[in-house]
Amino acid sequence: MPAATWPCPSGYAAHAVIMGPDTGSRLLIVPALFDEGHKLRRFTLEVMRRLVGAGLGCVLPDLPGLNESLAPLEAQTPETWRGAMAAAAAHFTCSHVLAMRGGCLVAPDLPGWFYAPLAGANQQRQMLRARIITAREAGREETQDGLLAQGREQGLELAGYRLGAAFLQSFGALVPEAGNQISTISQDQLGGAGLWMRAEAGENAAQADALAAIVAVALKGQG
């Protein structure tokens, strides 16, 4: 898969998957966050392949601290992620954005689409609950409020992700802000259940077709 590096404000080498032409409309794809990012990785790439088939360029950068990124996750905040995505959009001269799920919370200021956007509180709640379940199996009792209070002071490991205090101080209050240049694509428009909820990552060609078609048709319509 064609990859490139770009000057990420984190100071660490940052990778991006590059597909399709670098002229005309070019989409910055902001990946879903944490576990959902893994679950949706293949789906995201399948959507990109279809967009390239429609003649569109796509760039999928890593968020600092996630996927292949070597930047320490603990040092990241939603603001550093938003800055990194804006830097990627500028470097790769992206004209539009397609943000997936929690990625909508850190999308740069470009026209485009939010796919099944997720509030920070909901994503955080899932991760806290996963930790509580694991702790209970090990005979430890933890609560969401207790964990959050601790995390906002000294950081917290959630579902295998070491999050910094600054991250936890702001992430839970974030809601997707789809301004008038953003169209929201709901899961209902794709048919079937979202692949992010799968216990094991899966794929769905029909859903990838549907998501890519919504974006490609709208972009082609803009000429």
């Binding site: 709640r125 899932q126 991760m127 609950r129 996963a130 379940i133 579902a159 992010w196 909820m197 799968r198």
Partner: peptide, 9 residues
């Protein structure tokens, strides 16, 4: 545990 959290949600 993450899958259970997804399932419950």
């Amino acid at each position: 545990s993450m899958a259970v959290a997804n399932l419950l949600a």
